[in-house]
């Protein structure tokens, strides 16, 4: 360390040219990041303050787009639904990968098959997953789940057309796709636990369940906290599922904030309204991450 520091100091006078070379090497990448990631965030704010015809801005209207946005009944529906999506994804989607990881970690036979098997849905393209599950949830006799139900003598269900079921069923689809990859992360966490811990616990008289409860659960707890916030952020942006499976219906029962953005910008071509909603989504996400960081800091 000391050596590296003195080296740096000696070179400090000559460094100017090298610095410039470094910046030049990453200049193309910086331009791409600026164009695709950083600038659009600022542009969203600017767009949302104007009225526009197509992509051409007309005049500065201040916060008028935001007021129209909040007054529209769709916004309230989308806002409520997005939190319902998060609520159900925490109930259904959060525990599944943990349970899967704990169980698969206990196997010896077929372990690599189980790992590959549960990861497979993650390889299936999102659009294909959604369309596949649309066939499963199809009401009537040809729906796959209805076929399976008819074998045990239960009458056909309407699945996604029942507004009470729409969001939980969409969350099941999402969980099917993503639980495997999350559980691999937990499995890696579990495999890092030293076997001495288990042995020591056994000597102290801990049974298998107690070892899971007092060794495995605490050791993946911090991992679970990180993955929880990542899950909330990703569910918050849910778009493809309602767009393809239900088109936001029945009667706005599954419309999400991102889908409303899509409708404003790419169905109605009202880009300022779409941008205004993007800004609102971004702001909520920043608040959520802020709350999360504060909560985790208070505990420590």
């Amino acid at each position: 360390m000391v050596k590296a520091n003195t080296l740096n100091r000696n070179n400090k006078t000559k460094f100017k040219r090298q610095d410039l070379v470094g910046w030049l090497v990453m200049l193309p990448s910086l331009i791409l990041f600026a164009f695709f990631v950083w600038e659009p965030l600022l542009e969203s704010i600017r767009l949302s303050l104007y009225s526009a015809k197509g992509i051409r801005l007309q005049e500065f209207v201040g916060l008028e787009n935001y007021i129209r946005l909040f007054r529209h009944p769709d916004f309230l529906a989308a806002f409520r639904n997005t939190f319902l999506y998060i609520f159900y994804s925490l109930i259904i989607g959060f525990m599944v990968p943990i349970v899967m990881a704990v169980l698969i970690s206990e196997t010896v036979h077929l372990k690599s098959f189980f790992r590959v098997g549960v990861y497979f849905p993650n390889i299936v393209p999102g659009m294909a997953t959604i369309m596949m599950w649309s066939f499963f949830f199809r009401p009537g006799n040809t729906g796959v789940l209805n076929i399976l139900l008819s074998k045990v003598g239960i009458s056909p269900q309407v699945w996604l057309n029942n507004p009470k079921w729409t969001i939980p069923l969409i969350i099941i689809t999402m969980t099917w796709k993503s639980a495997g990859s999350t559980s691999l992360i937990y499995m890696a966490g579990i495999s890092r636990i030293s076997s001495e811990l288990y042995e020591a616990a056994t000597i102290d008289g801990a049974g298998i369940w107690q070892r899971v409860r007092h060794i495995i659960v605490p050791s993946i707890f911090s991992l679970a906290k990180t993955l929880l916030i990542l899950q909330i952020i990703s569910v918050f942006q849910i778009l493809y599922e309602p767009l393809v499976m239900t088109n936001g219906g029945p009667n706005n029962a599954s419309i999400s904030l991102m889908m409303l953005t899509y409708n404003y910008a790419f169905r109605d071509f009202n880009y300022p309204m779409g941008a205004a909603l993007s800004v609102v989504i971004c702001a909520i996400l920043i608040v959520l991450s802020g709350i999360y960081t504060k909560l985790t800091k208070d505990k420590e």
């Binding site: 990041f33 164009f35 695709f36 990631v37 950083w38 600038e39 659009p40 965030l41 542009e43 969203s44 767009l47 992509i55 952020i233 990703s234 918050f236 942006q237 778009l239 991102m258 953005t261 910008a265 790419f266 880009y271 779409g274 941008a275 993007s278 989504i281 971004c282 996400l285 991450s289």
Partner: peptide, 17 residues
């Protein structure tokens, strides 16, 4: 920081750009 900010939220502005 951009790792945390989801790209889909800026899709409208990106498309316009």
């Amino acid at each position: 920081w951009s790792l945390l900010i989801p790209s889909t939220t800026s899709i409208v502005a990106l498309f316009v750009n």
